[in-house]
């Protein structure tokens, strides 16, 4: 009950934040360019009086700025974010098309980060000061210092061009083609359709981008796991567990690890932000048709409707992610709910 009211309160607090975000985006994209029409129409259709008139009426460009903002907001609430200059599709439709690719890549890289980051952090904590600890520290620092757009190119050069063991850019082999559309997550869709060639092709295409994207998260997880496990292992109840003759593996797994993982929840928000930042670079390098690449193309081509739309959607996703993190934390630690 208490938890539900906490969630409701947090959701209500998000409304003014989202309104603030739309104002910020509106200000950035409407006030900076000289001609507001340039934000809605392509250069070509600006020569066409009919489309200029239609756009002026739809977006209320002959009205005052506050009025224009409310019209923008009204259209937004109805799911209308304008037409992309580049793809000529409604931005909402484009985002729905591109989002699953990013979600699939994000989940894959998160799984990679957990599968490698947790054991690396645990071993670094248990052998603090030894080789594995130093190795994990250097590995983590490399992850935080390496430009993903560069490491991605190196991986492509090595595994695709030189060794030929992994496929190049893209989501699936063009000769095989994507699986029948259900969710847009190719791995899931291909299994659903029983299309095994598409499944293996999508899986092999996922490996390199997931590694590049997951490296930063991996580094974060390994370091947090290490430091919080070291702290927990010094607690009295661990000494008690050891003193009563428990095997070391039981002490670590049953007693220490469960408590050491609590701080992991708090870094999920940070990890998600890292994932989104990395997705922009990784998707560009690997020609991955996700929302990150869409955002980059929109900004390079000055495709204003697409730029505003993707930025808004990413910001809202980010807020929800932070909300989920906070709720998880409130579930684990009841004191948060009271505050």
């Amino acid at each position: 009950m208490n938890l539900i009211s906490y969630i409701v309160r947090r959701l209500l607090l998000m409304i003014p934040m989202i309104i603030g975000i739309t104002i910020a985006l509106f200000v950035v994209t409407r006030i900076v360019p000289v001609n507001p029409l340039a934000v809605i129409l392509t250069e070509k259709s600006m020569d066409n009086p009919a489309s200029v008139k239609a756009a002026t009426e739809k977006w209320g460009l002959d009205k005052s700025l506050p009025e224009q903002y409310f019209i923008y907001l009204k259209n937004l609430v109805q799911g209308d974010m304008g037409i992309s200059f580049k793809t000529k599709n409604p931005v909402t439709k484009d985002i729905i098309t591109f989002l699953p690719a990013t979600i699939e890549l994000g989940i894959a890289s998160f799984i990679f980060a957990i599968l490698l980051g947790l054991p690396l952090g645990i071993f670094a904590a248990l052998r603090a000061g030894k080789f594995i600890d130093h190795f994990s520290r250097v590995f983590a620092l490399l992850g935080a210092s390496m430009p993903p757009f560069w490491s991605g190119l190196l991986m492509l050069f090595l595994f695709y061009y030189k060794l030929g063991v992994l496929p190049g850019p893209g989501r699936v082999d063009a000769r095989i083609g994507p699986p029948t559309h259900a969710t847009g997550l190719f791995l899931f869709d291909s299994l659903l359709a029983g299309d095994m060639p598409a499944f293996w092709s999508s899986l092999s295409h996922l490996i390199l981008p997931a590694i590049i994207l997951g490296w930063f998260t991996l580094a974060l997880m390994a370091r947090i796991t290490r430091s919080s496990l070291i702290e927990v292992l010094q607690q009295d109840y661990i000494r008690t567990a050891r003193a009563k003759g428990l095997r070391e593996s039981a002490v670590v797994v049953k007693h220490a690890l469960q408590n050491a993982l609590i701080p992991m929840v708090t870094i999920m928000g940070l990890a998600f932000a890292g994932l989104m930042t990395g997705a922009i670079m990784t998707e560009t390098i690997f020609a991955w048709p996700g929302i990150g690449r869409y955002a980059v193309e929109a900004s390079v081509n000055l495709d204003y409707p697409a730029l505003m739309g993707t930025t808004l959607v990413i910001a809202i996703l980010y807020m929800f992610m932070n909300l989920i993190v906070d709720v998880l934390y409130a579930v684990i630690d009841p004191r948060i709910r009271e505050a």
Binding site: M17, G20, I21, I23, A24, L25, V28, T29, V32, P33, A273, M276, T277, I280, A295, V296, A298, S299, V300, L302, L307, M308, T310, T311, I314, A315, Y318, M319
Partner: peptide, 20 residues
């Protein structure tokens, strides 16, 4: 500050740099 920080920083930087 809250509003600015509710974007992953590179995403907002991308939008601002594009507009400028």
């Amino acid at each position: 500050a809250d509003i600015t920080m509710s974007f992953p920083s590179i995403v907002l930087a991308l939008a601002i740099a594009a507009v400028l």
